[in-house]
């Protein structure tokens, strides 16, 4: 069993009077795919937004540990610093691509921080273009690698907005990967995909885990995706964790069944063995 890459401890998030996340604790282990599931409004995306710094949790501690032992306290970091230093990449529930830029440009923007350093914050490269060229080619190669992996290479010069929905989802993942993450957070990557596409997605995610040795945190509604590829599942309902375990355990947990089927609380007691 591997160590935890992300530890969420006693995280609570309040919006005014509304408690969106209530004392949530869980771990995501290195090199595994962890799924967060739950009915609509359970607070899944809020968890993501806290991890990636777009929201600041009201209380709680989020610790990210790199393989070399560096730790980051995510709740104290700005969103872009989390992406940049803690190396957490994410996608969005409602796809956020740079729609007027080409697919390739999208992937180059993802390598911004690396390229900024190599180009002397761009301004040196205005005066001395030569030294930068090799770095840009390298970045294009990396983009090419991910485009081939996601079968988007033939669309490289098309504007991102022209891609069909399924390909936009894949492009967003490719873009997140170009930022060299250690933890990839995917917010409903299979939403709106047809069975064939979601099958492809499964394979892509598994290969990211196998070949890149990446840890993935995933929000998903599509149970076929969740059950097939997750190593570990966390179930939320009304901002609380109601279950946590491997797919087999979750499948048989009466509390999960109750949350999904909308059974009253008393009946849950009865259902429980």
């Amino acid at each position: 069993m591997s160590d935890a890459i992300l530890k969420v401890e006693h995280m609570t998030m309040r919006f005014g009077g509304l408690v969106a996340i209530d004392d949530l604790s869980f771990e995501a282990r290195r090199g595994e795919i962890t799924a967060i599931i739950g009915p609509n409004g359970a607070g899944k995306t809020t968890v993501f937004n806290c991890i990636t710094g777009f929201y600041k949790p009201t209380t709680g501690m989020l610790t990210l540990t790199h393989e070399n032992g560096d730790t980051f306290l995510l709740e104290r970091m700005d969103d872009f610093r989390i992406a940049r230093h803690a190396k957490v990449s994410r996608t969005f529930q409602n796809i956020r691509l740079f729609s007027g830029m080409t697919v390739l440009e999208n992937l180059l923007v993802a390598q911004h921080n690396h390229l900024m350093r190599e180009s002397g914050f761009s301004f040196m490269a205005v005066l001395w273009p030569r030294g930068y060229r090799a770095h840009e080619e390298e970045a294009v190669e990396k983009a090419r690698y991910w485009l081939e992996k996601t079968d988007l290479i033939h669309r490289a010069d098309d504007p991102a907005a022209d891609l069909p929905y399924g390909e936009q989802r894949k492009l967003e993942i490719a873009r997140a990967m170009c930022a060299d993450p250690v933890l990839l957070c995917l917010d409903e990557p299979a939403a709106g995909l047809n069975p064939k596409e979601s099958d492809e997605l499964n394979r892509l995610l598994l290969s990211i885990r196998e070949e890149e040795g990446l840890s993935i945190l995933l929000i998903e509604h599509d149970m076929s995706v969740v059950m097939n590829i997750s190593d570990h599942i966390v179930v939320l309902d009304y901002g609380k964790k109601i279950s946590d375990g491997d797919p087999e355990f979750i499948r048989n947990d009466p509390k999960v069944i109750a949350a999904y089927l909308g059974v009253e609380d008393e009946e849950v007691e009865e259902l429980a063995p």
Binding site: F54, D79, F80, F98, A110
Partner: peptide, 11 residues
């Protein structure tokens, strides 16, 4: 194009 996506990419 999208400021939030930029921040998610560490910009």
């Amino acid at each position: 194009e999208d400021e939030i996506a930029c921040r998610a990419l560490g910009i």
